[in-house]
Nucleic acid binder design. Structure first.
Length: 825
RNA sequence: GCGGCGGUGGUGGAACGGUAGACACGACGGACUCAAAAUCCGUUGUCCGCAAGGACGUGAGGGUUCGAAUCCCUCUCGCCGCACCA
């Protein structure tokens, strides 16, 4: 026996050096003519990492999944684009700079270097010629260019509104970055502030973002989250008239069928007309106090669902268009300015919130829809279900679903309203009062006003500053030399926009840049992009279900409208991998002290073992706790395979891995197992992402080899080479090593093995014999035997006979090549 | 409250409506060794039984079916997202 041992630290760097020097994983862009006759393309992409410190175990899993997919597709003859880059702008580097004084650029570049070392040590098959980082001017030049294109089309705009402000990070946040009223990043409570900010008009795409979810292969949970977030509701806009001031107030309602049940009218504290309406009334001072209090509340306090319904009367009324009734107007903080029109018609009989408010303020409650079984008592209100309409004038007796349509028709004919849809989605607030981000390419000229930076002046470079401390305005504002510039239109003095962009802007288009990463004339050549788009398989964490994945979809649709690309969706298929939890089953965190760092693991067990382990641990879309013992088991498996390679090469000369033509006995068992494993691994990987069971199948093949040590050498060589070939997508170094040892060939240059269908079926099988659905015997039966023969064999079996004694056979079910079920009474 | 996903041995997990528990961990037993490590072989759902064998078993209850972890209904527990969205 060989004295040598499986030493990943010796094997892995050797193969990495070959892939690096031969640029094995680079794929060139082809000319249009070349592309026509080229093999099918496959764009496989993992979400780009945010470089902060060292990579963690989650990165290892993410890239182990993506690399397996990329290898699998390459060996099916696809031209696989598999690039990588860095999402390099962002708050953590800047906060670190404030704490330590290390400039964000320095810390980021250092972290990028650590990621680069790690990715090479993991043996990932990346096309490094397309590497990008979002903080480099060569990249963010084009982020700015895209911003300008959006600006030209009115899709980027500046406006004042109530926005989320994080007092700790001293910057505004997008809606998507506020979790339960707290800052997504630092956890501090978020305040509402009235500020002028930059927005992307993502709401213009709400319908398409919603509808096109049906065209992509994404996990249902992610689609559901996006649908939820976009929140399309259909209903009607109804106009209520205020006589005193002569102003029309439209409201949005999903229940126009309950219009006769409206008994009051409520406006949001932020509604611009609230103070105007209250002016001169007895309630003026009270309204003013209420509005001030509401505006100063934190988002979390304001949003608490079970909070008592507070509010103040405005001393005014509006007229209900359906019956001319005057409805008292109120201001109350349960009405949100951002949704609908900032005002509602209140129907306490059929809406829980309006009901609570009516009870608290002694307002009338009127039933206008009959409850189930003709219920008409007021005790059962509020009632949100369907039924015939009552107390609704000429609509009485009409079912409310019908009444809904009729009411909209009536409103339309009277010009008092119309059917409409409303969305929960708000425009994307993209400006940040922080330093470490992409500068917004806009100037403010004293005479020309807001002026976009001309394309030829891009990039607007991020200047070096000394003080990163946020003070409620961007640290860039202190860079006087940079801020003061001249207007490209009038040559007069102008000032630069000092806010920077949300980092999600950078990551909303990076996957397009990979396709043409070194183009310095344009962000990409549309023809080149057409070769690669869309991404055939995207892989990342579920935490981006709304943020990045929604923003990127919006960008692609907007860019498609500009005819800069020809797809409507960036990610044709998405896979979301589960988290790796600490050994204690809790999320890894420094404070818990349960963090497993990938690099020491790799030094100890090798990259192959670490990669296989994170794939073997369970279904890859599920969370799983780290277990060193389990990792050792995977390492043991790889060592067993390695030893088989050594043994085969010691007993046999090198040669191609061919399936022996007419194996018998042990050899046949081995060859069959090898073909079974090929079939199993192939179907498990083919769109199913069942890496855990694929690896288990290779383990079975290896176990079978240990069980038949004396099988004929050619059969053993075939089986071992097959195991090496199949394990390659998960353990590329070991796969390449063992395969070369016994065949002299490079496994990644070999096509994916094909299972021989003849080897997948044996001559005989174990027939399961059931009586009334319970297994009573198993007998050997010839494959392909006719039903009658199987029935006869089963009925004759001892197990069936003993359970049948005295009972009458009613029926016999035969499943060919599988089982017989005897139904007896 | 709304939406989505789950509940299978001691553990992670397998299982086109057709042998529940593949594979792995752990545990137990054995081989090799002066000994240990490493390695190799075997046993391992629960209960009854010396055994042959049998009974029970996929959160609970019902249904469909020759046959249900799998499909349907009711309930329950857990996780995730959204949440005063009119």
């Amino acid at each position: 026996m060989s004295e040598r041992r499986y030493e990943p630290s010796e094997i892995e760097p050797r193969w990495q050096a070959i892939w690096e020097s031969e640029r094995t994983w680079e794929v060139p862009n082809l000319s249009a003519a070349e592309a026509d006759s080229a093999p099918p393309k496959s764009y496989v992409l993992e979400m780009l990492p945010y470089p902060s410190g060292e990579p963690h175990i989650g990165h290892l899993k993410n890239y182990a999944v993506g690399d397996a997919v990329a290898h699998f597709r390459r060996r099916h003859g696809h031209r696989v684009l598999h690039p990588l880059g860095y999402d390099a702008f962002g708050l953590p580097a800047e906060n670190n700079a404030i704490k330590t004084g290390i400039p964000p650029r320095e810390a980021t570049d250092e972290s990028i270097a650590a990621f680069q070392r790690a990715f090479r040590a993991w043996g990932l098959s990346i096309d490094w010629s397309r590497e990008i980082a979002s903080h480099e001017p060569a990249y963010y030049r084009w982020t700015q260019w895209i911003f300008l294109r959006l600006y030209e089309r009115g899709l980027a705009y500046r406006k004042e509104s109530a926005v989320n402000w994080c007092p700790n990070d001293q910057t505004v946040l997008a809606n998507e970055q506020v979790i339960d009223g707290h800052c997504e990043r630092c956890g501090h409570e978020v305040e509402l502030r009235q500020l002028e900010q930059w927005f992307f008009r993502i709401t213009a795409y709400a319908d398409r973002l919603l509808d096109d979810l049906d065209t992509i292969r994404w996990p249902e949970s992610v689609k559901a989250q996006q649908r939820n977030w976009i929140g399309r509701s259909t209903g009607a806009e109804v106009t209520f008239h205020n006589e005193q001031l002569g102003i029309d107030y439209p409201v949005f309602t999903t229940r126009p069928d309950t219009l006769f049940g409206a008994t009051f009218f409520v406006m949001a504290p932020e509604h611009p007309d609230v103070l105007k309406l209250a002016a001169g009334t007895a309630q003026e001072a009270e309204v003013r106090a209420y509005v001030n209090r509401a505006l100063n509340e934190t988002a979390a306090d304001r949003g608490a669902a079970d909070k008592p319904k507070t509010g103040v009367a405005l001393g005014r009324t509006v007229t209900n268009p359906v019956n001319g009734e005057p409805l008292p107007m109120y201001v109350a903080d349960y009405v949100l300015m951002e949704y609908g029109t900032g005002a509602i018609m209140a129907v306490p009989g059929h809406d829980e919130r309006d009901h609570a408010f009516a009870v608290a303020h002694g307002l009338p409650i009127r039933r206008v829809i009959e409850g189930p079984d003709g219920a008409t008592s007021d005790e059962e209100l509020p009632y949100a279900g369907d039924g015939p309409m009552v107390n609704s004038g000429r609509f009485d007796g009409t079912h409310n679903r019908t009444g809904y349509e009729q009411m909209i028709e009536w409103l339309q004919s009277e010009q008092r309203g119309h059917g409409t849809v409303s969305y929960r989605l708000r425009d994307w607030l993209l400006s940040r009062q922080r330093y470490w981000g992409c500068p917004i390419p806009i100037l403010y000229c004293e005479s020309c006003g807001m002026v976009p930076v001309p394309d030829e002046d891009l990039p607007v470079r991020l200047p070096e500053v000394e003080d990163y401390q946020p003070r409620g305005r961007s640290p860039l504002a202190a860079a006087e030399d940079w801020v003061h510039t001249t207007c490209p239109r009038c040559d007069g003095p102008a000032r630069r926009e000092t806010d920077t962009m949300d980092t999600f802007v950078d990551s909303s288009w990076y996957f397009l840049r990979y396709c043409d990463a070194r183009n310095d004339q344009a962000p990409w050549d549309p023809e080149v992009l057409a070769q690669w788009a869309p991404i055939d398989q995207y892989i990342g964490g579920i935490e981006h279900a709304i943020l990045h994945l929604l923003y990127a979809r919006f960008f692609v649709k907007a860019l498609a409208d500009m005819e800069l690309l020809s797809v409507q969706e960036p990610f044709a298929a998405l896979f979301t991998q589960g988290m790796i939890l600490g050994p204690d089953g809790a999320k890894m965190s420094k404070s818990r002290g349960n963090v497993i760092s990938p690099m020491p693991i790799i030094e100890r067990y090798g990259a192959d073992a670490a990669r296989c382990y994170v794939l073997f641990i369970g279904p890859p879309d599920q969370d799983a706790a780290w277990s060193e013992k389990s990792l050792e088991g995977v390492h043991r498996f790889l060592a067993r395979l390695w030893r088989l390679g050594e043994e085969v090469s010691a007993n046999d000369s090198r040669g191609p891995a061919e399936s022996p033509s007419a194996p018998e006995g042990d050899a046949l068992t081995l060859v069959r197992k090898a073909h079974w494993a090929i079939d199993k691994v192939t179907t498990d990987l083919d769109g199913r992402f069942a890496f855990n069971t694929a690896i288990a199948a290779i383990m079975e093949l290896v176990n079978e080899l240990y069980r038949h040590p004396d099988a004929e050498p050619r059969a053993r060589r075939f089986a071992v080479a097959t195991a090496a070939s199949l394990v390659f997508p998960f353990a590329p170094h070991l796969g390449a090593e063992v395969y070369e040892t016994i065949t002299g060939e490079r496994v990644w240059e070999q096509p994916w093995p094909q299972a021989d269908p003849a080897m997948l079926v044996a001559d005989s099988f174990e027939l399961v014999c059931q009586v009334n659905g319970k297994v009573r015997d198993r007998v050997n039966a010839p494959t392909g035997a006719p039903r009658e023969e199987l029935e006869r064999l089963a009925l004759a079996s001892a197990g069936v006979q003993s359970h049948l004694n005295g009972h009458e056979v009613v029926k016999v079910i035969v499943v060919p090549d599988k089982l017989v079920n005897v139904v007896a009474r």
